[in-house]
Design a protein around this nucleic acid. Sequence first.
DNA 1: TAAAAAGTGTTATATTATAACAAACGTTAT
DNA 2: ATAACGTTTGTTATAATATAACACTTTTTA
Lengths: 132, 132
Amino acid sequence: MAQAQALSRNQQIVLNIIEKAKGPLKAYSILFNVQKKGINAPQQIYRALDKLIEMGKIHKIESKNAFVACRSSDCEISKATAFSICESCETVDEISDTKLSKYLSGFNHKKGMKFKRFNLEFFGICKKCKKD
Amino acid sequence: MAQAQALSRNQQIVLNIIEKAKGPLKAYSILFNVQKKGINAPQQIYRALDKLIEMGKIHKIESKNAFVACRSSDCEISKATAFSICESCETVDEISDTKLSKYLSGFNHKKGMKFKRFNLEFFGICKKCKKD
DNA sequence: TAAAAAGTGTTATATTATAACAAACGTTAT
DNA sequence: ATAACGTTTGTTATAATATAACACTTTTTA
């Protein structure tokens, strides 16, 4: 079985910031937050982000160009991602719903394409925002 | 019933280009293609794109920052979009699958959020590319 | 321990998207 | 018809997001 890959220095720094955050972080906001640690250039952030995504440690929210930590422990390599996004407060939750995930993983295009990966983003107004 | 909205000059120009294209177009590639028509600035493109999206005439492929025409005639306002994307040739197809669409439209988050809209992007290698 | 692979630091630049303002156009209500 | 309003346009400038390219170091593997 593939061993959990060790993180390099920069990867660890970037992951820590994302994990501590309450919501999705943008690449440049991560950059500003790690300049005290000697990381000075966007490249360093983007390289770390790329690897963390490959490892399944984080996900990119495509509609927001932002990054969140993966909360589902079994998500070694992330082939199936689903998020719920509040259009008012911008809160993002990762959805882990076995049924949904199975349904979509089994879905194949009529034109003969077999899917390896999907990303699903739901939008709405969250409970909290609805009250206001 | 809401009348089909008339398109303004720039909106029509931009929509024409997107409809003629074989695949998704990027905003700046649209811009270069319409400079002969007197459109000179990104703003003009992005403004048209925004309106066309609102009207459901086009969709944005978030993972590619690119835009495609909507092929499903009933898609007046696009609340439910699904695409199949080939990671090799970059071909993008809009998926119109009633079952899928119903399944996802009926999906609601456990945390009490009611979704108004979703976007789903599937990735894989298409039939054609598999042969090579 | 040499070779290969992965990671780092850096400068520069490409790509994608929005801000802000003034003028023209289109609709509707009077 | 025309004033008032909203929408669209044109324009300049700039913000935000992301990659290219190169030289060097560290880690892994054979």
